[in-house]
Amino acid sequence: MGAIKLLWRHSTWLDRWILALLLGLTCASWAALAQRPAGTRIVVEREGAVLFTATLHETKEVFLDGPAGGITLVVANGAVRVREAGCRDKICVRMAAISRAGEWIACVPNRLIVRVEGAYSERKGYDLLSR
């Protein structure tokens, strides 16, 4: 406590403002880091433009419009799948739910790509999947 009192006595108001700012910044960044769910996130794109993002730890259902009637996306239990699609083939509906970084579901008629993103270290031991 003595050291802090000494520091306070010898510091200027500018020093104190900078110290407070740094303390605030440090606490805020680490608090935000603790809040962020571990794991990966979902990104939905069309022609390179991001239309929707969510973390895999959320529970969500969202409709995304598209030229072939759009799709209904369900995020639940750490995975994402297409529940309904307005297109004729509905191949994306039949695809299994995805949960690992690098996996994707595409609805070609709606020009939509649903991807699971994440760091390579989150990919359970591999970088890319040949299939």
Partner: peptide, 8 residues
């Protein structure tokens, strides 16, 4: 490192 490629 090399790329690590998983096979489906």
């Amino acid at each position: 490192k090399p790329w690590r490629i998983a096979i489906q």
